[in-house]
Design a protein around this nucleic acid. Structure first.
Lengths: 193, 193
DNA sequence: GTCGACATGTAACCAGTTACATGATTAA
DNA sequence: TTAATCATGTAACTGGTTACATGTCGAC
């Protein structure tokens, strides 16, 4: 059943949502929270409306099953649970031989690249900002790591957390390095331009 | 003149193209090559058709000036040069106090995050692939660095290059680390489902 | 009485890609 | 003659966001 002829590739977001559903029955609303505090760091967090749209698509493909739940003191909600077909499709997608290369859009790096058009102090300020940001994220990640590192259940998320930490450290080192180089260049003669 | 009332924010791609044009008069075709081998590493490289679309927009805003050039042994082409208004708009955008946070879409990390659904060997193979990739990119970056590091003209691109190198190193370290952790876990009992 | 969390959705729009069309020149 | 490079563009589509609508409950 895995690999029926009409198996068209879905957009990555669909698999991301399906992957989150695979952790257990949830609603669209909960999924949004979950996404924001997990895959958000290395994959964008889709808009709420997008999540609902994906859930409808996954349902129409038979990849998730829907269950309506009436609540008294809360609005009614729809809970989704992954199906066997859904898990097949997900495993299939996950096991493709090569992951597509990362997509990175860094307006900071674009700004640095065009740095000759920017006042040095502005550039340094932006780099400082990024450094602080990375430092804050690193602390947060370290805290999370403490909480989950011995919990076998979180082994794979833990690995992605480690990646986040490595990237933060790289960013901090680079930002400091770049600031230093900027200052050196700036003081070694205002003869530029 | 910088900051007229109708100054609506353009999409980042527009500023990216404008930024590339700011290096000197070019055609859409040349711009595509330039983009592929420069900002491509930290900003996506727009489709060719998109570049032409942006050039038309920039022209209609008065940010670039167009000049038609007839060629004998090549198709005719249109060359673009940034205007004063264009440079104002660009500087203005570049100097905004905080760069928006990086957008990262890593299907590899998404795959690792959902790693419990993937055979360990597949996961390791993907991580190996990424490690090799980062290693290759690092070598390439080091080579480029050798060529440009003493050329004042390339100072700002050089800073972005250093960022790329830092990220490559972080990726290599992380990938090796993750593979090790995966192997350890795998050998310490096949009791995981 | 108003704000924030809960909960789902629609409609309009935007940014960007893919596939294709056109056509000349040059190198294999 | 076939493919690659030069050179620009159109049309259809996809993936995703924004703004908005709707309504309840609990806390301040």
């Amino acid at each position: 059943m895995a690999k029926s002829p009409g198996d068209k590739q879905l957009p990555t977001t669909a698999y991301a949502v399906l992957g989150l559903v695979s952790f257990g029955e949830t609603s669209g609303y909960d999924l949004k929270q979950f996404a924001d505090r997990s895959i958000n760091y290395f994959f964008w967090s889709p808009a709420t409306s997008q999540i609902y749209a994906e859930l409808r698509r996954l349902k129409s493909l038979g990849y998730v099953r829907e269950r309506e739940v009436e609540q008294e003191r809360r609005p009614d909600k729809r809970l989704y649970r992954i199906t066997e077909d859904g898990e097949d499709a997900l495993r299939n997608w996950l096991a493709r031989p090569e992951a597509s290369p990362d997509v990175i859009k860094s307006t900071l790096l674009l700004t640095v690249f065009l740095g000759r058009l920017v006042p040095v102090e502005t550039l340094i300020a932006q780099l400082e900002g990024r450094r602080r940001q990375a430092q804050a994220a690193l602390s947060e990640f370290e805290e999370i790591q403490r909480q989950i590192k011995d919990n076998e259940e979180y082994f794979f998320p833990y690995l992605t957390l480690r990646c986040g930490m490595a990237n933060c450290r790289a960013t901090i080192v680079w930002a400091e390095d770049a600031i230093e180089e900027l200052r050196r260049r700036d003081s070694s003669g205002e003869l530029h331009e």
